[in-house]
Amino acid sequence: MNTKVVKLNYNNLDKEAIKEAGYVLRNGGLVAFPTETVYGLGANALDDKAVKKIFDAKGRPQDNPLIVHIAEISDIETLVQEVPEVAFKFIKKFWPGPLTIILPKSNKIPNSTSAGLDSIGIRMPSNEVAREIIKASGVPIAAPSANISGRPSPTDLERCVEDLNGKVDYIIGGEKSNVGVESTIIDCTVYPPCILRPGGVTLEMLKEVEKEVYIDPAIMKKPEEKLKPKAPGMKYRHYAPKAPVKVIQGDLDFTITKINELINKYTKEGKNVGVIATDETLNKYHNAIVETLGSRNNINIIAQNLFETLRKFDDKNVDVILSEAFEEKGMGIAVMNRLKKSAGFDIISI
């Protein structure tokens, strides 16, 4: 397959390119496009054959449901059976933005999109290019992250091309995603509403709207093999670079000491070691390839840089990656969720 790649100037959008991407989607093709969270791989959410192409292109398990992206709030009406009052509150506060809301699906949504579930996740991205492409297509767009399944999600155009060139019809974009991790997923088919994936809209932000919101405790631990995922990212190993990842969790002195011990151990075994550090600890590690996520004082920047940093270690052919951990509050919950899953829950703690 010949993949067309278009890099946009966000200050002067190429309307013809957006129109062309919309045409491809409307007619059953696959288009990778930018959102504020990560880049997405889109297909017509109502076209069973088109949706199945997503699973083929990504190598994605068929029981992993997709998120449907819309351009206008009114687009939700025909896609779901009902919108509970609490969901309306979240929509009013956080759309457009990095929040996916799970609702009872209508019969317009094929089982391939919902992975056979009676519910579907809906989101309205804040990225202007994403919404313009959805409008140009004239259909709701099912879109997981635009990467090979299991790998770190792409936050720029170049990483989409790296993973999907020759596997999709069109890749369009330009700027880096500014959130850096996938959307928060909240289940509003139950009460209290339950967070099934942490993301850019934090637990604290959601509690300001509905104080009873809670996080499913299962998402921060290794999932059971028999789990039937209600939302993307719940069951399978995700966000993983080629080298195994090990997360070291504890106070900073313990973390630095333990990582240096492991560097020495792996180096003696002849392994090339990568370390995920922060600005504050960048110079604390030796005999390793060290990448910083940014300052510990800015967890949003750490989230923004996480996936690209994991991919850099692929570029440098490391044999093992050792990562510092972060406080699990605010965006730190989303960062740690992604780190733990990238490590397959291989965690060393005090």
Results as ranks from 00 to 15, higher is better:
102 I>K: 02
74 S>N: 07
36 E>K: 10
104 P>G: 01
63 D>H: 05
101 I>E: 01
68 V>P: 09
68 V>L: 08
81 Q>I: 06
75 D>E: 11
98 P>A: 11
50 A>S: 15
114 S>C: 05
108 K>R: 14
83 V>H: 00
79 L>Q: 04
50 A>Y: 02
34 P>R: 12
33 F>E: 11
51 V>G: 01
70 I>M: 02
53 K>S: 08
99 L>D: 04
98 P>D: 06
63 D>T: 06
79 L>V: 02
97 G>I: 04
40 G>Y: 11
48 D>L: 03
87 A>S: 08
94 F>E: 14
78 T>H: 06
76 I>R: 00
44 N>E: 05
31 V>Q: 10
110 P>L: 07
43 A>L: 01
60 R>N: 04
36 E>A: 14
74 S>P: 00
78 T>K: 13
29 G>Q: 09
30 L>H: 14
106 S>K: 02
113 T>Y: 04
56 D>A: 15
26 R>C: 08
79 L>A: 00
92 K>M: 05
39 Y>Q: 13
112 S>I: 07
98 P>V: 11
44 N>I: 05
54 I>A: 07
60 R>A: 00
109 I>E: 01
61 P>K: 10
111 N>V: 04
83 V>W: 04
30 L>I: 12
37 T>N: 08
69 H>R: 13
26 R>M: 06
52 K>M: 14
67 I>Q: 02
94 F>S: 04
80 V>F: 08
111 N>D: 15
